[in-house]
Protein backbone atom coordinates (compact mmCIF):
# COMPACT_ATOMS: atom_id res chain seq x y z
CA UNK A 1 0.00 0.00 0.00
CA UNK A 2 1.48 3.41 -0.92
CA UNK A 3 2.56 5.76 1.87
CA UNK A 4 1.19 9.29 1.49
CA UNK A 5 1.05 12.44 3.55
CA UNK A 6 -2.31 13.51 4.96
CA UNK A 7 -2.24 16.47 2.51
CA UNK A 8 -1.69 14.18 -0.50
CA UNK A 9 -4.36 11.78 0.71
CA UNK A 10 -6.85 14.68 0.70
CA UNK A 11 -5.57 15.72 -2.72
CA UNK A 12 -6.09 12.18 -3.98
CA UNK A 13 -9.64 12.09 -2.63
CA UNK A 14 -10.48 15.42 -4.31
CA UNK A 15 -8.94 14.36 -7.62
CA UNK A 16 -10.67 10.98 -7.67
CA UNK A 17 -14.07 12.46 -6.78
CA UNK A 18 -13.70 15.23 -9.39
CA UNK A 19 -12.82 12.57 -11.97
CA UNK A 20 -15.74 10.42 -10.88
CA UNK A 21 -18.42 13.14 -10.85
CA UNK A 22 -18.30 16.25 -13.10
CA UNK A 23 -20.58 18.09 -10.65
CA UNK A 24 -17.85 18.20 -7.98
CA UNK A 25 -16.01 21.55 -7.82
CA UNK A 26 -13.52 23.18 -5.45
CA UNK A 27 -13.77 26.79 -4.33
CA UNK A 28 -11.85 28.95 -1.86
CA UNK A 29 -9.00 31.36 -1.22
CA UNK A 30 -5.80 30.45 -3.12
CA UNK A 31 -7.03 26.98 -4.10
CA UNK A 32 -6.24 27.44 -7.80
CA UNK A 33 -3.14 29.25 -9.02
CA UNK A 34 -1.38 29.03 -5.64
CA UNK A 35 -2.54 25.38 -5.33
CA UNK A 36 -3.82 25.87 -1.80
CA UNK A 37 -2.37 27.58 1.26
CA UNK A 38 -1.36 24.08 2.41
CA UNK A 39 -1.04 22.60 -1.11
CA UNK A 40 -4.02 20.30 -0.71
CA UNK A 41 -5.26 21.30 -4.18
CA UNK A 42 -1.92 20.82 -5.94
CA UNK A 43 -2.39 20.12 -9.67
CA UNK A 44 -6.17 20.34 -9.61
CA UNK A 45 -6.48 23.65 -11.53
CA UNK A 46 -4.28 22.23 -14.26
CA UNK A 47 -6.28 19.03 -14.49
CA UNK A 48 -9.84 20.35 -14.10
CA UNK A 49 -9.65 24.02 -15.20
CA UNK A 50 -10.89 27.25 -13.65
CA UNK A 51 -14.61 26.36 -13.96
CA UNK A 52 -14.14 23.62 -11.38
CA UNK A 53 -11.23 24.96 -9.33
CA UNK A 54 -12.30 28.48 -8.39
CA UNK A 55 -10.12 31.11 -6.67
CA UNK A 56 -12.25 33.45 -4.59
CA UNK A 57 -11.77 36.88 -3.00
CA UNK A 58 -11.14 37.07 0.74
CA UNK A 59 -14.85 36.92 1.51
CA UNK A 60 -15.78 33.79 3.45
CA UNK A 61 -19.46 34.56 3.85
CA UNK A 62 -19.72 35.31 0.11
CA UNK A 63 -18.11 32.19 -1.28
CA UNK A 64 -19.74 29.96 1.32
CA UNK A 65 -23.10 31.37 0.15
CA UNK A 66 -22.23 30.84 -3.51
CA UNK A 67 -21.38 27.27 -2.57
CA UNK A 68 -24.73 26.73 -0.86
CA UNK A 69 -26.52 28.12 -3.90
CA UNK A 70 -24.50 25.89 -6.23
CA UNK A 71 -25.38 22.86 -4.10
CA UNK A 72 -29.08 23.79 -4.19
CA UNK A 73 -28.77 24.02 -7.97
CA UNK A 74 -27.45 20.45 -8.24
CA UNK A 75 -23.65 20.81 -8.07
CA UNK A 76 -21.47 19.24 -5.35
CA UNK A 77 -19.15 22.04 -4.20
CA UNK A 78 -16.21 21.59 -1.85
CA UNK A 79 -15.53 24.86 -0.02
CA UNK A 80 -12.00 25.25 1.38
CA UNK A 81 -11.48 27.62 4.28
CA UNK A 82 -7.85 28.65 4.71
CA UNK A 83 -8.49 27.85 8.35
CA UNK A 84 -11.65 27.26 10.37
CA UNK A 85 -10.81 30.42 12.29
CA UNK A 86 -11.78 32.32 9.12
CA UNK A 87 -14.90 30.20 8.65
CA UNK A 88 -16.47 31.95 11.62
CA UNK A 89 -17.21 34.75 9.13
CA UNK A 90 -19.24 32.26 7.09
CA UNK A 91 -21.20 30.74 9.96
CA UNK A 92 -24.47 32.33 8.86
CA UNK A 93 -24.33 30.47 5.53
CA UNK A 94 -23.23 27.24 7.21
CA UNK A 95 -25.67 27.29 10.11
CA UNK A 96 -28.65 29.18 8.71
CA UNK A 97 -28.53 28.11 5.07
CA UNK A 98 -26.64 24.89 4.50
CA UNK A 99 -27.86 23.16 7.65
CA UNK A 100 -31.51 24.21 7.37
CA UNK A 101 -32.57 24.34 3.72
CA UNK A 102 -33.44 20.66 3.46
CA UNK A 103 -35.64 21.03 6.55
CA UNK A 104 -37.17 24.34 5.55
CA UNK A 105 -37.94 23.15 2.04
CA UNK A 106 -39.88 20.24 3.45
CA UNK A 107 -37.22 17.81 2.24
CA UNK A 108 -37.32 19.09 -1.35
CA UNK A 109 -33.89 20.73 -1.63
CA UNK A 110 -30.81 18.80 -0.47
CA UNK A 111 -27.56 20.74 0.01
CA UNK A 112 -24.68 18.37 -0.88
CA UNK A 113 -21.79 20.60 0.09
CA UNK A 114 -18.47 20.07 1.88
CA UNK A 115 -16.82 22.74 4.04
CA UNK A 116 -13.24 21.81 4.80
CA UNK A 117 -9.99 23.27 6.14
CA UNK A 118 -7.51 23.09 9.03
CA UNK A 119 -8.94 23.29 12.54
CA UNK A 120 -7.43 23.79 15.98
CA UNK A 121 -4.05 25.06 17.06
CA UNK A 122 -0.84 24.74 15.10
CA UNK A 123 2.25 26.39 16.62
CA UNK A 124 2.25 29.92 18.03
CA UNK A 125 -0.54 31.28 15.85
CA UNK A 126 -1.99 32.97 18.93
CA UNK A 127 -5.49 33.25 20.32
CA UNK A 128 -7.47 34.18 17.19
CA UNK A 129 -5.94 31.54 14.91
CA UNK A 130 -5.62 28.56 17.25
CA UNK A 131 -9.19 27.54 17.89
CA UNK A 132 -10.89 24.18 17.74
CA UNK A 133 -14.41 24.55 16.37
CA UNK A 134 -15.76 21.02 16.51
CA UNK A 135 -18.19 21.58 19.35
CA UNK A 136 -19.57 24.67 17.54
CA UNK A 137 -20.32 22.88 14.28
CA UNK A 138 -21.35 19.55 15.77
CA UNK A 139 -23.97 21.41 17.80
CA UNK A 140 -26.03 22.05 14.67
CA UNK A 141 -28.71 19.61 13.47
CA UNK A 142 -28.51 19.36 9.70
CA UNK A 143 -24.70 19.18 9.60
CA UNK A 144 -22.43 16.17 9.66
CA UNK A 145 -18.94 16.57 11.12
CA UNK A 146 -15.84 14.45 10.55
CA UNK A 147 -12.31 14.90 11.90
CA UNK A 148 -9.84 12.38 10.44
CA UNK A 149 -6.57 11.70 12.22
CA UNK A 150 -4.68 9.61 9.64
CA UNK A 151 -4.02 9.94 5.89
CA UNK A 152 -6.15 6.87 5.15
CA UNK A 153 -9.09 8.21 7.15
CA UNK A 154 -8.61 11.66 5.57
CA UNK A 155 -9.00 10.19 2.09
CA UNK A 156 -11.84 7.86 3.03
CA UNK A 157 -13.84 10.43 4.97
CA UNK A 158 -13.42 13.24 2.39
CA UNK A 159 -14.73 10.88 -0.30
CA UNK A 160 -17.72 10.02 1.90
CA UNK A 161 -18.28 13.72 2.63
CA UNK A 162 -18.33 14.64 -1.08
CA UNK A 163 -20.75 11.80 -1.87
CA UNK A 164 -23.08 12.63 1.02
CA UNK A 165 -26.25 14.53 0.15
CA UNK A 166 -26.02 16.65 3.32
CA UNK A 167 -23.63 19.43 4.27
CA UNK A 168 -20.52 17.84 5.79
CA UNK A 169 -17.87 19.66 7.79
CA UNK A 170 -14.37 18.20 7.35
CA UNK A 171 -11.98 19.29 10.12
CA UNK A 172 -8.35 18.85 9.10
CA UNK A 173 -5.21 20.01 10.89
CA UNK A 174 -2.24 22.13 9.90
CA UNK A 175 -0.07 19.93 12.12
CA UNK A 176 -1.51 16.84 10.42
CA UNK A 177 -0.83 17.75 6.75
CA UNK A 178 2.71 16.35 6.83
CA UNK A 179 1.81 13.17 8.75
CA UNK A 180 2.51 10.09 6.62
CA UNK A 181 0.62 6.84 6.54
CA UNK A 182 -0.45 4.01 4.31
CA UNK A 183 -3.39 4.94 2.10
CA UNK A 184 -5.34 2.41 0.03
CA UNK A 185 -5.42 3.27 -3.68
CA UNK A 186 -8.62 4.04 -5.56
CA UNK A 187 -12.00 3.33 -4.05
CA UNK A 188 -11.30 3.74 -0.32
CA UNK A 189 -14.35 5.11 1.46
CA UNK A 190 -14.67 5.45 5.24
CA UNK A 191 -18.32 5.63 6.27
CA UNK A 192 -19.39 8.69 8.28
CA UNK A 193 -20.45 7.84 11.83
CA UNK A 194 -18.03 4.99 12.41
CA UNK A 195 -15.29 5.23 15.07
CA UNK A 196 -12.10 3.21 14.87
CA UNK A 197 -9.98 1.48 17.50
CA UNK A 198 -6.46 2.73 16.80
CA UNK A 199 -4.96 0.63 19.59
CA UNK A 200 -6.69 -2.18 21.47
CA UNK A 201 -6.49 -2.31 25.26
CA UNK A 202 -8.15 -3.71 28.36
CA UNK A 203 -7.86 -1.27 31.26
CA UNK A 204 -8.98 2.16 30.11
CA UNK A 205 -10.41 3.72 26.93
CA UNK A 206 -8.81 6.93 25.66
CA UNK A 207 -11.46 8.55 23.44
CA UNK A 208 -10.06 11.08 20.98
CA UNK A 209 -10.21 12.44 17.45
CA UNK A 210 -8.05 14.34 14.98
CA UNK A 211 -4.74 15.56 16.47
CA UNK A 212 -5.48 14.17 19.91
CA UNK A 213 -5.28 10.63 18.49
CA UNK A 214 -1.50 11.06 18.36
CA UNK A 215 -1.55 12.42 21.90
CA UNK A 216 -3.60 9.46 23.12
CA UNK A 217 -1.41 6.92 21.33
CA UNK A 218 1.68 8.37 23.01
CA UNK A 219 -0.10 8.32 26.36
CA UNK A 220 -1.07 4.69 25.77
CA UNK A 221 2.57 3.82 25.14
CA UNK A 222 3.64 5.53 28.35
CA UNK A 223 0.88 3.85 30.32
CA UNK A 224 1.98 0.45 29.02
CA UNK A 225 5.63 1.14 29.69
CA UNK A 226 5.47 2.83 33.10
CA UNK A 227 2.18 1.72 34.63
CA UNK A 228 1.68 -1.70 33.06
CA UNK A 229 -1.77 -0.48 32.05
CA UNK A 230 -3.32 -1.42 28.76
CA UNK A 231 -5.09 1.56 27.18
CA UNK A 232 -7.48 1.34 24.27
CA UNK A 233 -7.36 4.30 21.88
CA UNK A 234 -10.74 4.93 20.29
CA UNK A 235 -10.64 7.44 17.41
CA UNK A 236 -14.13 8.90 17.01
CA UNK A 237 -13.43 10.04 13.40
CA UNK A 238 -17.01 11.32 13.13
CA UNK A 239 -18.30 13.81 15.68
CA UNK A 240 -21.80 14.04 14.25
CA UNK A 241 -23.20 11.48 14.16
CA UNK A 242 -21.24 10.00 17.06
CA UNK A 243 -20.55 6.28 17.00
CA UNK A 244 -22.26 5.62 20.31
CA UNK A 245 -22.09 1.87 19.82
CA UNK A 246 -18.29 1.93 19.57
CA UNK A 247 -17.96 4.20 22.62
CA UNK A 248 -20.23 2.04 24.75
CA UNK A 249 -18.64 -1.16 23.45
CA UNK A 250 -15.15 -0.08 24.40
CA UNK A 251 -16.08 1.30 27.82
CA UNK A 252 -18.04 -1.87 28.54
CA UNK A 253 -14.80 -3.79 28.10
CA UNK A 254 -12.47 -1.45 29.97
CA UNK A 255 -14.87 0.06 32.58
CA UNK A 256 -12.94 3.34 32.51
CA UNK A 257 -12.55 6.23 30.11
CA UNK A 258 -10.68 9.48 29.50
CA UNK A 259 -11.93 11.78 26.74
CA UNK A 260 -9.31 13.91 25.03
CA UNK A 261 -10.02 16.88 22.77
CA UNK A 262 -8.40 20.06 21.50
CA UNK A 263 -11.36 22.27 22.31
CA UNK A 264 -12.25 24.09 25.50
CA UNK A 265 -13.91 22.16 28.33
CA UNK A 266 -17.27 23.95 28.48
CA UNK A 267 -19.87 22.12 26.34
CA UNK A 268 -17.10 20.32 24.50
CA UNK A 269 -17.18 17.11 22.47
CA UNK A 270 -15.99 15.29 25.59
CA UNK A 271 -19.04 16.46 27.49
CA UNK A 272 -21.22 14.85 24.82
CA UNK A 273 -19.20 11.62 24.96
CA UNK A 274 -19.44 11.51 28.75
CA UNK A 275 -23.20 11.88 28.42
CA UNK A 276 -23.31 8.82 26.17
CA UNK A 277 -21.15 6.83 28.59
CA UNK A 278 -23.05 7.64 31.77
CA UNK A 279 -26.35 6.99 30.02
CA UNK A 280 -25.57 3.80 28.12
CA UNK A 281 -22.70 2.25 30.10
CA UNK A 282 -23.58 3.27 33.66
CA UNK A 283 -23.47 -0.22 35.07
CA UNK A 284 -20.09 -0.84 33.49
CA UNK A 285 -18.27 2.15 34.96
CA UNK A 286 -15.73 1.53 37.69
CA UNK A 287 -14.61 5.15 37.93
CA UNK A 288 -15.85 8.60 36.94
CA UNK A 289 -14.96 9.54 33.36
CA UNK A 290 -12.35 12.29 33.12
CA UNK A 291 -11.67 14.78 30.33
CA UNK A 292 -8.49 16.31 29.01
CA UNK A 293 -9.11 19.51 27.03
CA UNK A 294 -7.39 22.72 26.07
CA UNK A 295 -7.02 25.00 29.09
CA UNK A 296 -10.11 27.18 29.52
CA UNK A 297 -8.36 30.31 28.21
CA UNK A 298 -7.66 32.00 24.85
CA UNK A 299 -4.64 30.19 23.39
CA UNK A 300 -1.45 31.88 24.65
CA UNK A 301 1.13 32.99 22.09
CA UNK A 302 4.03 32.23 24.45
CA UNK A 303 5.48 28.91 23.35
CA UNK A 304 5.72 27.40 26.84
CA UNK A 305 2.28 28.55 27.85
CA UNK A 306 0.87 27.23 24.59
CA UNK A 307 2.43 23.85 25.25
CA UNK A 308 0.90 23.79 28.73
CA UNK A 309 -2.53 24.83 27.44
CA UNK A 310 -2.79 21.99 24.91
CA UNK A 311 -3.72 18.39 25.73
CA UNK A 312 -0.46 16.46 26.12
CA UNK A 313 0.41 12.81 26.63
CA UNK A 314 1.48 13.68 30.19
CA UNK A 315 -1.92 15.14 31.01
CA UNK A 316 -3.68 12.13 29.48
CA UNK A 317 -1.47 9.75 31.48
CA UNK A 318 -2.25 11.69 34.65
CA UNK A 319 -5.99 11.47 33.98
CA UNK A 320 -5.71 7.76 33.14
CA UNK A 321 -3.83 7.13 36.38
CA UNK A 322 -6.68 8.73 38.27
CA UNK A 323 -9.41 6.66 36.64
CA UNK A 324 -7.26 3.56 37.16
CA UNK A 325 -6.99 4.46 40.85
CA UNK A 326 -3.20 4.48 40.62
CA UNK A 327 -2.92 7.80 42.46
Amino acid sequence: MPTLTYRDALNQALREEMQRDPNVLLMGEEVGVYQGAYKVSRGLLEEFGSMRVVDTPIAELGFAGIGVGAAMGGLRPVIEFMTWNFAVLALDQIVNSAAKILYESGGQIPVPIVFRGPNGAALQLAAQHSQAWESWVSHIPGLKVVAPATPADAKGLLKSAIRDNNPVIVLEGEMLYNVKGEVPEGEHVVPIGRADIKRAGRDVTLICHSKTVTVALKAAEQLAEHEGASAEVLDLRSLRPLDEEAIVGSVTRTNRAVVVEEGWPQAGIGAQVVDVIQREAFDHLDAPVLRVTQADVPMPYNRQLERLAKPSPERVVAAARRVLYLD
Partner: peptide, 15 residues
Protein backbone atom coordinates in the same frame (compact mmCIF):
# COMPACT_ATOMS: atom_id res chain seq x y z
CA UNK B 1 -26.41 10.49 58.30
CA UNK B 2 -28.12 8.49 55.58
CA UNK B 3 -25.63 9.91 53.08
CA UNK B 4 -22.61 9.21 55.20
CA UNK B 5 -23.50 5.61 55.87
CA UNK B 6 -24.34 4.77 52.29
CA UNK B 7 -21.89 2.33 50.76
CA UNK B 8 -19.95 4.10 48.03
CA UNK B 9 -19.44 1.76 45.11
CA UNK B 10 -18.84 2.24 41.43
CA UNK B 11 -21.82 1.34 39.26
CA UNK B 12 -19.85 -1.63 37.94
CA UNK B 13 -19.01 -2.87 41.44
CA UNK B 14 -22.66 -2.53 42.40
CA UNK B 15 -23.79 -4.61 39.45
Amino acid sequence: PADATRVKASPLARR
